[in-house]
Amino acid sequence: MPDLATAAPIVGAAFLASAVEVVEAFTIVLAVSVVRGPRPATLGTAAALALLALAVAVLGPLLAKVPIHGLQLTIGVLLTVFGLGWLRKAVLRAAGALPLHDEAAVFREQTSALQRQADAHDRAADWLAGVAAFKAVLLEGTEVVFIVLAVGARPGLLAPAALGAAAACAVVLAAGIAIRRPLSKIPENSLKFAVGALLTGFGVFWSAEGLGAPFPGGDWSILALVGLFLAAGAALASLARRRVARPA
């Protein structure tokens, strides 16, 4: 049974990262549901979720067979690279150097694309709409699967990571079903900023463990690393904002 210092950041990272991805997938599933009804949206989503659950069920136990130091280093490098990408993009968006992700605009684009598709292929429209929902959930879910497997890649931690992801799915779906609109009020960039810092913190921690030179303080140092990357990200966002605001 993992202790609180170990499990809390893992559940938190899996929850937040999954929430961001589920919000993006939900926008497309909602567009499918609005244009072609709930049946293709539900079938496409259920098929993709089944495939993703299968991936976790197969890959999770396989990872447990890999030697721990090699696994920690590999996962550490991948998480660092993945988390840094999220953090950099969130910093640039916070600074105004990149446009913010707009769920309402994505919903409008998806709805009109699905409508055009339905007009052109009337008989296969439900099938195509189901495939669109399947593809959206599968693609966004691939990142969730990676995050769950990566942050849960130590004995006993896959279940807390999967629990965090499942909780995010439940919360986002409940909110989406309740309001029946894209979840555009969610501060997506702030979430991505936090998730980028979390994943990078985990990545650096496990890279050091994998190299055989662990941080002092054990798992508590993950929290310090996450704090370091949050602070660095905030400082860099401020710096980048000044650069962007400066006349060319």
Binding site: L84, R88, A97, A213, F215, L236, L239, A240
Partner: peptide
């Protein structure tokens, strides 16, 4: 090593942000 590694990753992020802005 852990501190050098963390510092190096922060520096990589800084370069990436400054390059992107």
């Amino acid at each position: 090593l852990p501190f050098l590694l963390a510092g190096g990753i922060v520096a990589a992020l800084a370069v990436g942000v400054v390059r992107g802005a």
